[in-house]
């Protein structure tokens, strides 16, 4: 049980950790790309743009947090 818990904790830390927005972002990105339909010519571009948007949102969240903290 102890090892199972440690194993689950490892994957939780690895996939989610302190950046749940990245995990959620990637799930959403892959969902959208899948919905565009197999073989669609838009898929590769959509995937790249949405991945960039995900990292931008994640760094912007941290940026806002830092700015808020510096106000205090």
């Amino acid at each position: 049980m102890k090892y199972l818990r440690a194993f689950a904790m490892f994957w939780w830390d690895f996939l989610i950790g302190d950046t749940p927005e990245i995990f959620i972002g990637i799930v959403v990105v892959l969902g959208i790309v899948a919905l565009l339909g197999k073989g669609s010519s838009v898929q590769p571009f959509a995937l790249a743009v949405l991945v960039i948007a995900t990292v931008f949102v994640s760094v912007w969240v941290e940026f806002s947090r830092k700015v808020k903290a510096s106000k205090k």
Partner: peptide, 14 residues
């Protein structure tokens, strides 16, 4: 990651 997840979903890379 983008390339392989795309391949797995049937994305046609130009």
């Amino acid at each position: 990651g983008s390339f392989w997840s795309g391949e797995g979903m049937g994305v046609h890379w130009p």
